[in-house]
Design a protein around this nucleic acid. Structure first.
Lengths: 233, 233
DNA sequence: TCAAAGGATTTTGTGTACAATCTGAAAAAT
DNA sequence: ATTTTTCAGATTGTACACAAAATCCTTTGA
């Protein structure tokens, strides 16, 4: 039998790992929106030449995290409030699509178990009077888990790519700013239950409508919040 | 195969103009899906060094026209039938969203005039018994005009970016392959009238539903066509 | 004949030098 | 004082050389 040399070292090129590094740094808010990304600057900080830095910049520009202006360079993309609202609209449309497809295709046993675990954990959390910041962060994770599983179950590669891009639009700073009243969180958690139910019963139309409205409600919360204190930045 | 080089205007860099050149070449089908893009090869044919070629590759990879594998290079992305179907689903969702937003926002006078012109031109075309290939190509342009105006009226920057990507998925070869029966064309042209009417009357919900179904119907045509002659390639 | 092994060739990844362009501040002119 | 001009420094764009990795082809062994 033919055995090709297996078990390669974790060979990733510098360009790829630097792109990963910078992606995390940008998403963590270590660069300000609109900030210019100076090649030689990062080249020194990361101990590589400009070449892999440029490659990483180009990759991140393709993902929409940086914007490029010829002869001027790369800048951290800044999102207007309008951009963020639009991103939620896109997410609503695409996550609705993914939920419908998930209902049509069905979930694997592992996915169902993972969703049920997330739902139970959420049940325990929202059953409190008030939320600590840790609770909020924890619920954020649970929420992400739920949506990720729906994407995995119903999202095609292309849908997931586009969802990833539209999710990057709302930077973490804004995400946390959104005032998540306990009442809103309970309502959204209840949405999760209903969406899962619709998927289980293979009701694609209902899953889609529920998911769309679920995501739209976050958009509306955002608009409401920023409307009541417009200059809260 | 001859690549028509884009004119080197002084206001843009080589990387940008080469990306433009290659984008057109790929969309025109001058490279086969899955084909490996060899840097030095193109570098000689276009009389530049490998550096701007690499930059162009990276940009095109960001747009989804090429895929990159570390240490192996860039390949022309190939789309499975499943990919194409998924792209139509995404388009249906996003174009529906754009139509709703267009209805909510309303159209400018110029946009309305352009749509009405496209609709009239279409009316004249579909009123025939049979279509020549020129007719079909002409109708394709009219169709594109209609959708572009709706995108312009209702699509945010982000929606339009994503639509552009999902429209690139179905290469021209496949596009033309789809058997557009006169009956289907007439039906779709009628859809355009109704969608426009819904936008004019500011009925966002109706505009969205009609547009979604309109795009989905193309998807279904495609599935039907490829099902009846599976190995028509 | 076939498959594995090895090396030569090709191709991509990276560093670096230099050219082209932009930026910002000081100097000159009104 | 304000605007324009100029120019030096900084930054990006491009070419090229070399290193690292993959690919291809020949050779070798059963």
């Amino acid at each position: 039998m033919k055995i090709t040399a297996v078990a390669e070292t974790e060979t990733t090129t510098r360009s790829v790992s630097i792109a990963e590094t910078l992606r995390c740094a940008i998403l963590a808010g270590e660069f300000s929106p609109g900030e210019r990304m100076i090649e030689i600057n990062l080249s020194e900080r990361l101990n590589v030449s400009r070449t892999p830095i440029r490659a990483a910049f180009q990759a991140l520009a393709g993902e929409g995290l940086l914007v490029h202006t010829p002869n001027k360079g790369y800048y951290v993309r800044e999102f207007s409030l309008e951009d963020i609202v639009q991103a939620y609209e896109i997410r609503a449309a695409l996550e609705g699509l993914a939920a419908r497809r998930a209902a049509q295709a069905g979930m694997t046993t592992e996915q169902m178990e993972a969703v049920e675990e997330a739902l139970s954990a959420g049940d325990a959390l929202v059953d409190q009077e008030a939320f600590t910041p840790e609770d909020r962060s924890h619920y954020g994770q649970i929420n992400k888990t739920f949506h990720d599983i729906v994407h995995a179950a119903g999202g095609s590669t292309m849908i997931r790519d586009m969802l990833r891009i539209s999710q990057q639009v709302a930077p973490s700073s804004h995400h946390n700013v959104i005032a998540f009243e306990p009442r809103d969180v309970r309502r959204r958690h209840d949405d999760h239950h209903r969406i899962y139910e619709a998927i289980l019963t293979r009701d694609g139309g209902r899953a889609e409508i529920l998911m769309r409205d679920h995501v739209e409600s976050v958009k509306l919360s955002l608009i409401r919040t920023l409307h009541s204190k417009p200059h809260a930045e």
